[in-house]
């Protein structure tokens, strides 16, 4: 079991001076993920908040090899790099005991939408890499548009609430399960409030051979329309309402739920704290809240069942 004190003694590979918003969850996630392996990491970062805010030329916040190509291809870029790494070993140009870890970091838009084919292909080919999706449930870098990871009812800049429309009308993609259907060695869903869970899962993802996928809820004060100090707290509420359960799936078979709230809170606790959902609490949108609660309850039940029986039964 690692302690925070031990973690503070590890080197920061992502440093201060980046331009991410106050209260952004990305640096918190990175702080834990980049400490979860002893080996050097090569990162392929998709276009997005993190890329833009951390590499404004001639400044950079990274102390490791980092490449950015475009929004939808971080997984295929890292598969080229990982392939070359294997080739160099085969050719004897890299010592066989050299160990490098490969990490793709992509937002929810680059994962659920434009980069899904690239990600699915890289997993299917079986490259040895970790894919980290930081899901802030919108295209935050371009101003908070709807992504297929935005939950139903979200007010975004392209699904605004108006006199006749209550925000986004479609459900969020269940990307963790979609990826798990590839039956890759490791898939996990986690959130920064539970730093230990996040760290442990990142460590497992790095240690395991073959592709691993981490879906991390990333609080975004700007697009969730919340006070910046509440961002970590909200990820905790996401777990307590079962909006964002923490679980992992190993080898496409066994599913472990890593956090079960003693007192499962109603979804209104999650909704009422964020101004992007504020309109849902109006009487005329009551049906949407009921619908959301219904789906959350079903999903949670399903997870509990799957934990008992295995995901394929």
């Amino acid at each position: 079991m690692i302690t925070l004190k031990e973690l503070t003694n590890k080197e920061d590979l992502f440093v201060s001076g980046h331009g991410l918003c106050p209260g952004c969850g990305i640096p918190v996630i990175l702080k834990l993920v980049l400490r979860a392996t002893e080996y050097p990491i090569v990162i392929s970062n998709a276009t997005g908040c993190l890329q833009v805010a951390s590499t404004e030329f001639p400044a950079t916040s990274w102390k490791l090899n980092w490449i950015h190509s475009s929004l939808g291809n971080a997984a295929s870029t890292i598969s080229g790099i990982e392939t070359m790494y294997r080739v160099l070993k085969k050719q004897g140009k890299l010592q066989t005991d050299t160990e490098i870890k490969f990490l793709a970091i992509v937002g929810d838009g680059g994962t659920n939408d434009i980069g899904l084919s690239s990600l699915s292909g890289a997993i299917e080919r079986g490259h040895d890499f970790v894919y980290l999706c930081y899901d802030n449930q919108s295209y935050a870098n371009s101003g908070g548009q709807r992504s297929s990871a935005s939950p139903i009812g979200t007010s975004t800049s392209t699904t605004p609430t108006g006199k006749v429309l209550p925000g986004k009308l479609q459900y969020k993609k269940d990307i963790t399960k979609i990826i798990a259907a590839h039956k890759l060695p490791y898939v996990a869903q986690t959130a920064p409030w539970n730093w230990e869970d996040l760290y442990t899962k990142a460590k497992k993802a790095f240690d395991i051979e073959g592709p691993a996928y981490l879906n991390v809820l990333n609080p975004c004060p700007k697009e969730w329309k919340i006070p910046s100090n509440k961002s970590i707290e909200l990820t905790r509420i996401a777990a307590d309402t079962c909006v964002w359960p923490l679980y992992e799936i190993e080898a496409g078979k066994n599913i472990n739920i890593n956090y079960k709230p003693e007192n499962k809170l109603p979804v209104t606790e999650w909704l009422k704290r964020q101004n992007r959902f504020k309109h849902l609490l109006n009487v005329e949108n009551r049906w949407i809240v009921d619908e959301i609660q219904n789906v959350i309850d079903q999903n949670w039940k399903c997870l509990l069942k799957q934990e008992k029986r295995g995901i394929n039964n």
């Binding site: 440093v15 400044a59 950079t60």
Partner: peptide
């Protein structure tokens, strides 16, 4: 950019 982690010079 062959500099690394120089962003900490940015005082925000």
């Amino acid at each position: 950019n062959f500099n690394t982690r120089n962003s900490f010079k940015n005082v925000l």
